[in-house]
């Protein structure tokens, strides 16, 4: 399997996990504005599952179906912990797209970098602050 195909499969899995995470953690938010933001992000991740699945189909590959349950990155029991989990979910999707950027070229590389930017924006909104290297946090030991 090529690096690009495995990166795309990982991106599909990250997007499925994000859809699951938003459906659970998003429901624990209290502020109506934040709920609306979470719903919009949920829709984005659902659409990205389809987008990444399309990229894989162009390469004669199929992602694994969504799992019934995913581990949330951190326990969620109130709006504060929900925001922390949603930020971590976005960091995970940014990381998955970083791997696609590394392995791809041309329009797909650029589109993946744009998806990383979108995830970084959502991550920063949940954190209310930015991180210097979104998508690279896990692999640089922070």
């Amino acid at each position: 399997m090529s690096d690009l195909e495995s990166a795309l499969l990982a991106a599909a899995a990250a997007e499925n996990a994000a859809v699951y995470g938003y459906s659970l953690a998003g429901a624990r938010l209290a502020d109506p504005h934040q709920l609306a933001v979470a719903r919009a992000a949920y829709d984005v991740h659902r659409a990205q599952v389809q987008t990444v699945t399309g990229w894989l189909a162009e390469r004669s590959s199929t992602p694994a179906p969504p799992a019934p349950v995913y581990d949330l990155p951190s326990p969620v029991n109130d709006p504060v912990t929900a925001r922390a989990a949603l930020a971590a979910i976005e960091e995970s999707t940014a990381a998955a797209y970083a791997d696609v950027v590394a392995a791809a070229a041309g329009p797909l590389q650029r589109t993946a970098a744009l998806a990383l930017q979108s995830a970084a924006v959502r991550e920063a909104r949940w954190r209310t602050t930015s991180v210097p290297f979104p998508g690279l946090l896990g692999r640089i030991g922070s």
Partner: peptide, 28 residues
Amino acid sequence: LDDLAATSGSLAMVLASIGGCEAAHAAL
């Protein structure tokens, strides 16, 4: 986004991440 087109691997990843950080700055 324009810069990383000329790159691949970890360098492309780092440029993409920096761009993500900058997009986040604009939003915040």
